[in-house]
Each structure stands twice: as structure tokens, then as C-alpha cells.
């Protein structure tokens, strides 16, 4: 069974072929990482799958349903969730309220004018916060949380819609190294426990090789290698194009510490 199927999608911006005929598939419980040097087309691929951009050609199937031209919100209703490189949360709420709002949104009653918004989903919201390890911070305004915690709240918001497919754009960007492993471990646990497929991009190679079930390597818009971490690590093409360049690796490391 496949939760996400991408067939031969391409996208061109002016003279630049940002994504060139990429195909991939993702199964429930699976953690699939997309890596590649800057400008490889990872973000564009994410936006094609997420619905922010229409592809020039190819197709996107989510949970067996044709989704190539669907807007973002409609994809969400097919079971696609998402986290962002810079966390997108509801800053003016407390963590608990934010998750309750996300639950309201996911339950699809946005035009109810007089019902009470907060309360009906309180227990569920607490459970979700507990799942991401944030039950302590339930009453804290999101705007005052530390960034690592904001990322966890964001994950809870995404989970509120009970997604079967979760897109995570650089889930550990901006986090302290110690927090990263914990977050990725949490995500893998959620994927396994909820039967959710996770597609993520990541600059932190330690996280990628420690937690991805499969890895897709993109260079200049095209997939040059795909497979299990050990196979990718051993692939000479990958080594040459990407990992082998010691300078680049060092730069990446410097960047995430910087």
C-alpha cells in the first residue's frame, strides 16, 4: 500500500529546470528523506507535493486519490499534514488553545458562529501535547516558548488532523544539536505508531542517516540515487556529487552550528 505516489513530476522556472522527472512512493510508517545540495530542487519538489506550486508535468497521488491540481487545503483533507522550515504556529494562542484550534480546523467546522471553540476538544488536545512531550506547557503562550518547543507544538498542530502523510521541511532546522535526535526519534515513533508516512528534507546528515528508512538524493532537479541509507552512503555517484565533497560537508556542518 502506498500513501504518496509521485510520478515523473517536472517544474521549470524560466531557464532553470528545478525539478526534472522525479518519481517516488511512500508507504505508511515509512520515513523517507530527500537530500541534496543547495539548489538541488528539494524545496520545489516539496512545494509540488504540498500544493503550493503546480507541476509542469507528471502527477501526484495522495492516498490513492489524484491530487496533482488540488489546492493545499484539499490535500490536507486527503490526509496530508505538513511542518515548515520555520515553524508555522498560532502565536497568539496558548499551546493548548493552538492545538484545540487545529483540531477544530481538522474537524471541518470553520463557519460555526456561536458554538464554543475551546473546551470540546480539550482532552484530545492535551493528549496530543502529551504525545509530543509538551503537556507541561499547555497553558504557556506559544509566543513565549523556546524555539525547540515551538517546533514540537507545530508537530502537534500537524498531528491534530490525524494525517496519514506528513511532509516535514527541515524538521530540525534552528534546533540545538541535542534536541534534534530527540525530535527525530519522536517523529519516527509517531510514524510507526500512527502508521503515518513521513517525507522529510534535512540538512543534518546525522539525523538523516540515523532515522530515514530510505533516502532520495537529488542533484540539479533529478534523482541520482535512492535506497536504504547504507546503499546511498556507498553509492559512488552520491559520494562524488555530494557527500564526497569534504568542503561542502564542512560548510553544512558549520551552517547548522552557526
Amino acid at each position: 500500500m502506498t500513501i504518496l505516489l509521485v510520478e515523473n513530476v517536472s517544474k521549470r522556472f524560466g531557464g532553470v529546470q528545478a525539478v526534472a522527472g522525479v518519481s517516488l512512493s511512500l508507504a505508511p510508517q515509512e520515513m523517507l528523506a530527500v537530500i541534496g545540495p543547495n539548489g538541488a530542487g528539494k524545496s520545489t519538489l516539496f512545494n509540488l507535493i504540498g500544493g503550493q506550486l503546480p507541476p509542469d508535468s507528471g502527477r501526484v497521488v495522495i492516498a490513492g486519490r489524484e491530487a496533482t491540481r488540488l489546492p493545499v487545503a484539499a490535500r490536507a483533507r486527503l490526509g496530508m499534514g505538513r511542518t515548515f522550515q520555520i515553524a508555522e504556529t498560532f502565536r497568539s494562542f496558548t499551546a493548548q488553545q493552538a492545538v484545540e484550534a487545529a483540531l477544530l480546523a481538522a474537524r471541518g467546522a470553520p463557519f460555526r458562529l456561536f458554538a464554543r471553540a475551546f473546551g470540546p476538544h480539550a482532552a484530545e488536545a492535551r493528549a496530543l501535547l502529551a504525545e509530543v512531550g509538551m503537556e507541561e506547557a499547555a497553558a504557556t503562550p506559544v509566543s513565549t516558548l523556546a524555539y525547540g518547543d515551538v517546533k514540537r507544538v507545530e508537530l502537534a498542530l500537524a498531528l491534530a488532523a490525524a494525517p496519514r502523510l506528513l511532509l516535514m521541511d527541515e524538521p530540525t532546522a534552528g534546533m540545538a544539536p541535542a534536541e534534534r535526535g530527540a525530535l527525530m526519534r519522536l517523529v519516527r515513533g509517531l510514524a510507526r505508531g500512527r502508521g503515518m508516512g513521513v517525507l522529510f528534507t534535512e540538512h543534518d546528515m546525522d539525523s538523516v542517516f540515523a532515522f530515514a528508512d530510505r533516502i532520495l538524493v537529488m542533484v540539479r532537479g533529478a534523482v541520482i540515487a535512492a535506497g536504504a541509507p547504507e546503499a546511498v552512503r556507498a553509492d559512488p555517484a552520491v559520494r562524488e556529487a555530494y557527500l564526497g565533497k569534504a568542503g561542502l560537508a564542512a560548510a553544512l556542518r558549520a551552517r547548522r552550528h552557526g
Partner: peptide, 11 residues
């Protein structure tokens, strides 16, 4: 607060 989040939740 966050239009991308709202859209991602299907609003």
C-alpha cells in the same frame, strides 16, 4: 497568525 498552517490544516 499563520496562513500556511491554516491551509495545511485544510481551512
Amino acid at each position: 497568525d499563520s496562513e500556511p498552517r491554516a491551509l495545511a490544516l485544510g481551512l
